[in-house]
Structures are given as structure tokens and as C-alpha cells.
Design a protein around this nucleic acid. Sequence first.
DNA 1: TACAATTAGTGTATGCCATGCACAGTTTCT
DNA 2: AGAAACTGTGCATGGCATACACTAATTGTA
Lengths: 243, 243
Amino acid sequence: MTTGEPPLPPGLALAWGLAPAARRGPKPAHSVERIVEAALTLADEDGFSALSLPKIASRVGVTTNALYRYVSSKEELLVLLADAAWGPAPESLSRDDWRDAATGWVHAALDRCRVHPWLLDLPVHGAPATPNLLDWLEKLLESMAKTGLPMPDILGCAVLLDGYARSVAKLARDLHETTTPPIQSAAVASFLQPLLVERGYPILASMMSGGQYEDDDELPEADVEFGLTRILDGIEVQVRRCV
Amino acid sequence: MTTGEPPLPPGLALAWGLAPAARRGPKPAHSVERIVEAALTLADEDGFSALSLPKIASRVGVTTNALYRYVSSKEELLVLLADAAWGPAPESLSRDDWRDAATGWVHAALDRCRVHPWLLDLPVHGAPATPNLLDWLEKLLESMAKTGLPMPDILGCAVLLDGYARSVAKLARDLHETTTPPIQSAAVASFLQPLLVERGYPILASMMSGGQYEDDDELPEADVEFGLTRILDGIEVQVRRCV
DNA sequence: TACAATTAGTGTATGCCATGCACAGTTTCT
DNA sequence: AGAAACTGTGCATGGCATACACTAATTGTA
């Protein structure tokens, strides 16, 4: 089964722990795990944009090019990094109630995105194919399978919920992690306010003058819950319809 | 009203057409619009990752550094680029039926993401604040206002629908624009199949062997509609509840 | 046991990139 | 007429991913 030279996407073989089993030559002083771990803490500390091979290498204590002995490209490293950062999917999802299970899954995903905000910056090429990512997907599919919906609908629900978790996480992060000292926020507001009125954007204008335009630290839990409840309600409509 | 030196985020003033009104010196040979347009066609042709100041400059016919006379940083240019690529929001949304209006908005957004797939790669810092982006947001808010829900819920629905449009567009793009000659897709499948069975992922395994794992060119329209219908149904539940 | 094959990590180099600074030429206000 | 201000260019810096050649270490084999 271990084909000689499979044309697999980068990182797949490594992610599943299939090392090439070397023979001659010195033993590697380090390991892919060590490198991924270094990359992970670096990303946690300095963010995704600061994640560079030179910096990772210096953490591990080797030259930049030494990394290429373990990983064939930065892209491959990022695949492994994503899998490591997501980690295994939650085990404790409700076994009976699909709403509880889905809610648990979404909250767990949001939690991962809070722990590693740069997860939302990692480029995605193709469907998930590494162990932990598939674990998350499987758990979500299992949750939705409890609805009794036909398979294609289960997939559709999974796509919907996964997308929701990611977009809410990204929104929360983009809105308040970056450049928003409240001073600037106020400056933007007073800059935009007259323009909005003048150009005929009544709702936006009233929202801004209404004052409560998202000035909390994070997207408040209530807002997350609102969207999630809409989605679950919508799924439930379909479930009842199908029974 | 034109404050002396407002501490606004990059690109805002430019995006709203507030030029600093120069006095002495030669007149600029080009314009911000020309530069943004060059960037836009470059991105359309070669993708977001190929978008660099040198390449844009050479299209315009100037040195790289000349761009800095029009734009203070690459980040600022990207803000303008996003606004230009989204363009004005659709005018022809239903005036009576909020479901039709929302559906029209989502389809229009998906269309923009099909025309300029790199829109999904543009970094986002903070809430939208440029004319076209606010136009899109206002139109969506107007659509949801027709539900009669209270203002915070309207915003919640808008976030939900906007997030859905983006995640579906991204999914469609990532799944089939990148590295998926069907040969490789098949290689991945046969690589994963035994692993999935062995490690206890029954649903994923059955989906893969089921054969119809997303091998269409784009996420089929039916799948887009499925998620959208769930969301709208879920909102409708809330609407009925509130009346 | 000695050699040859193979491998790990280093050094050096290439061609990108965003951005800063100094300068020359041009335009316009005083 | 002169000074001030602005435009575009040239040159330079530091960062990046990655390629290639090399040295040193290790191990299977003759």
C-alpha cells in the first residue's frame, strides 16, 4: 500500500506519520514535530505575518535551509501547522440531541480560533485531508447525522456550520484585534457620519449615531448565539419537513 | 469640515475622494484610479499572490516608488482595491419580500466573488468604511429591515448572510480552483480511504467511497441554495416569533 | 575493517518584495 | 526672478523563499 512515489499534495504523507525511513547518513538532530511546535509558538506570539522560515529555524537552533531537510516547502509546513493547531476534535459532544452537539462543536471551533487567531489566516488548498482536520469534520458530520436528514443535506449542514464558525471568528478577530484604539474608532465615526447621511444610507447612519456599533472587546457571546440559533432553527425546519 | 490631519485608517480619505489639493509642483502624470485599475486587472490575471507594487508600477509605466506619491502603503492600495472590485451594491433587490431581497443580495455577492476570486484573499482590518463596501452593507441591512425585527437582530442577520456568502464563495474557490487535477484527487482518495476506515471515521469513509465527493467544477448552485434556505428559514422562525 | 554510498546541516547566492532617502527636474506662488 | 513645493527616478536596506554546492557524519557492504 505504501506506493513508491505517490503524487500527493504537500504534507499529506508527513501529516499521517509516514516517514521515509532513512538508512545511511547521520541521524536527524531534530524532528518535524519540533519544527511545527516552534512554528506554532512563534505564530502564537507574533502572528501569522511574522511566520517565516528564518525565524522558525532560529528557534529550533538551525539554519534556515536545514528546515528543508524535514519539510519540502513552507506550504507543506503550513499544512502540518494547521493540523497541529486545530488538534483533535472535541469528544464530549451530546450523543442524543443534534442541536446540542452542533452547538458544542461550534463553540469548540470558536475556542480554537481564539487560542490561535492566525488559524484564520492559513491558506486553504482543497478539502481537508490531515488527521485532525478530518477528525473535526467527522465529528461535525456525526452531529448532523443525528438529524436523520439524507447524506447530502448532512454535508450541507456541516458546510453551513463550519462556515459560520469561521466567519464569526474572523469577524470578531478582524473587528477588534487590529487597529482600533477607541480614539481612531471615534474619528472614523465622526468622519463617516455626515457622509452617510448625505449619500443616503439611513440605516448605517442611524446605527452609527445609535452609538453601540460593536465597541466591545470581542463579538459578544450573544451575537454568536443569535446567528447559530437562526441556523439551527433553519435546519430544524428542514428536519421536521423531512420526517 | 476637511480637518487638518485626521488620524484616519489608511485609504479612507482617498476612498471618499478627498484629495489633498496640491498647489505647487508638477501635476501628477497619473491618478489613484489608474493605479487601482492596473492593480485590479493584474489581480484578475495573475491572482492575489502576484500582486506586487513593482508589477503594478510597471503596468502604469512608472517606477515602483512613484506609486508612493499616490498611495502611502500597499495596505492603503488594497483598501481602495477592495472597494473598486466590489463596486456598487445591486440596485434591483426586491422591495417587498425580505427573502427575495436577501437571496438577491447573496447571489450578487457570490457573483462578485466569482468575477474577482482574489477578493476573498484581501486582508480585512476593522469594519467596512469605504463607499462601496458601505453600500453593500446598507443594502443588506435594508433587506433585513423588511423583516420588522429589532435593530440588533437586523445586524445579526446581516452578519450571518454576509458570512455565509463569503464562506460559500471561499469554499467553492478553494475546493476547485487550486490543485485538483482529478488524478490527484483520486490519489488522495485512495490514500485516505484505508486510513479513514482504520481510524474509525465511518461517515467520511462512506462519503468518499460513495463517490460523489464534490467533483463538480464549482460548488453546485443547489448546495448554495441549501444553506441559504436554512438561514432564511431560521430567520423566518424568529420573525414569526416576534410578530 | 575499510570503503563507498547516503544523508544532515552549513554557506553562499539569486531573485523577489516593501519601503526609505537623496536628488533632479518641473511647476507655481510670492 | 526667485523660492518653495511637488513629481518621478536611482540607489539602498533588510526581509523573504528557495536553489546549489560543500563538509562532515554515519552506516551498509565488500
